[in-house]
Structures are given as C-alpha cells and as structure tokens.
Amino acid sequence: MVQYALPHHAISRLVYRASRWRTPFTAALIRAFVQRFGVNLAEAAEPDPAIYPSFNAFFTRALRADVRPLPDDPLAWVSPCDGVLSQFGLAQSGNLIQAKGRDYTVAQLLGGDVALAEQFGHSHYATIYLSPKDYHRVHMPVAGRLVQMIHVPGRLFSVSPATVQQVPELLARNERLVCVFETDWGLMALVLVGAINVAAIETVWAGVVTPPAGQGISSRRYGADTGMQIALDRGQEMGRFNLGSTVVMLLPSACQFASGLFPGMTVKMGQALGGCAQPVAE
C-alpha cells in the first residue's frame, strides 16, 4: 500500500502552511472546493467564499446559530460533529471495531494507558468520520469537566473508509488527541484522530495541540487541584480539525444508543443519538 511509504508528517506540515496562505486565488479555490464536494455554505455563519482570508479559515468555518438546535430532552446525548457514523456499540472485553474484520483495543486508542482504559471497560463507543464537505468543529455530546488531555504521536494514514478497511489498528496508530471528561454519568473520552493532510488539531482551552513539539506521549491533568478548570456544556465547541479526520467517543455505560442507528448513516452535530439515565443525586 502506497500510504505506508509516504512522508505523512512532511506532507501535513506543507499543507499546514499552504492552507494558511493569503492569495488572490483563495476565493476561487474555495468555490471550486464547494462545488467539487457539495459543501452546504448556506449553513455557514458566513456563506460568502470571498470573506475567508485563507482556505483553513473556510475549512474551520462556524455555523449559523440556528442550524443545529439541541434536543429538548436534557438527558439526550448528541453527535459531537457532522459526519458518517462508521461504527458504534459496546466495548467488548476492551475491544472496539474499526471495520469489518478489524478491531483494536481501548488501551491502544488511549496511548497504552491500561489503568485509564480499565475505567472504560463497559463503555459504549461511536466512531464518526468527517468527510471534506463536513463542518469540522467538534462539540460536547454531554456536559463535562475536563480531567486529562493526552497527545499521542503516530502515523497519519488517511482515515477514508477504504483505508480504514485495509490498515490494521489504524485509529490506534495515527496521531491523536485524547480528551477525558468527568460527566454526571462517569468518564467520557473524545478522541480526535489525525490523518494525512490534517495540519493541526485544536482545542478551545489549549489552542493548537498538533503538530507535536516532541516525539513522546504527553499528558496534562486538569481540575481544581491543578488550577486549570475547564467545564463545557452539551453542544459547546471543544475543538476542531484543521482539515478533516475522525472522532472516536467513549461514553459511560449509562448513556445508551437510540434505536434506528446503523453503520454508514449520516449524522449532524447536535443530533440526538441516544439518551442517558437520570443522574443519581448526591
């Protein structure tokens, strides 16, 4: 497979710079991209391609406030992003399905942190693939308080459905950012998986987190005892991809999937995908 031999990070660093160039041709490039991939700019807060100073500014565009209403049910959990629901289910013996005939473990996904993985032993998971046409900001499925952020260096294989079916353990091999939150139902993790041409991943509390400054896994704790407290409501933006990729969610066992979901279905940020049990009063 050609992708094994590609200089993933060198290509992505070039894309990082190129996507931020300000040129007289930026608006024309955006219009061509919109037409090629069928981007719905009517949903954007700014629908005029000429307004965006760079391609990355367009790619990370905000939506109009009225186009993704949250469900009225306060116990409903929602999709964190636009995309395709490629896989979902219950983590069986710590295993997650990547594609038919291919799986990987929660511990691998979390950068080898076995103790943390054990806390997600009975979690539900969902994998959402963001295609080029999608809105590329990531939001909270439920309200949560950030307790840990882990950056895991790795390869940058494409995360297209075809590649995911071919490369073993791809989602646990690519560079990724693991964000662990405490919720009213237990721990939740949002894992933002990098891919080739994904020039950077950002969070609302730390800014650009990738490309990495070093080669090893890095971790930072959050909470009252650290002096850094981050609390985000359901539907609030938590991060974004500078060019597209995949989000893997690990949800508390008390948060169940709705009926009628199926692999390959298109989902939208803010769409109810299930419900959580009533939290136990302390």
Score class of each variant (00 low, 15 high):
A57M: 08
L251C: 09
I11F: 11
D233F: 05
Q166Y: 15
T266E: 13
S93P: 09
A115R: 11
I30H: 05
I30Q: 04
S19I: 04
R234M: 00
A200I: 00
R240C: 04
G112K: 13
I30D: 05
V267C: 01
C179Y: 05
F157E: 09
H8G: 07
R145K: 13
G239P: 03
E182K: 08
S86F: 11
A258F: 00
G144S: 09
I201K: 00
Q166R: 15
Y16G: 13
H122R: 13
P211H: 11
S253F: 05
D103W: 14
A91D: 08
A5H: 14
M228R: 15
Y135A: 02
P211W: 11
G89I: 11
S245P: 05
L96A: 07
V159F: 06
L250S: 06
L14K: 12
A50C: 00
A28C: 10
F120P: 09
F37I: 07
Y125E: 08
T26D: 03
Q166T: 14
F59N: 05
A99L: 07
G275R: 11
A254F: 07
G227Q: 08
A172D: 10
L190F: 02
Q87G: 09
S259V: 12
F241R: 01
Y129I: 06
P212E: 11
C255N: 00
L170N: 12
V106H: 10
N242R: 15
P53K: 03
I51A: 13
R221E: 14
Q119R: 15
P53F: 02
D184K: 08
Y52L: 06
L116R: 06
P71S: 01
A28I: 09
L232R: 05
D225R: 15
E202W: 13
Q271P: 02
R145W: 11
W205M: 11
A42K: 10
T246S: 10
G264A: 09
Y129F: 03
A254H: 07
L116G: 07
V247T: 08
P71R: 04
S79A: 15
A45M: 10
D225F: 11
A65N: 12
A189W: 05
L29G: 14
A162Q: 15
S253D: 07
L6N: 03
P141E: 05
Q278N: 07
Q166V: 14
H122L: 14
T246H: 04
Y52S: 08
V78H: 04
D134S: 04
A65W: 09
V267L: 06
R102M: 13
A272G: 10
V167G: 03
L273K: 06
F33R: 06
G270H: 00
P168L: 12
Y104H: 10
G121P: 04
A42F: 06
F181R: 02
F25G: 02
Q108M: 15
L187E: 11
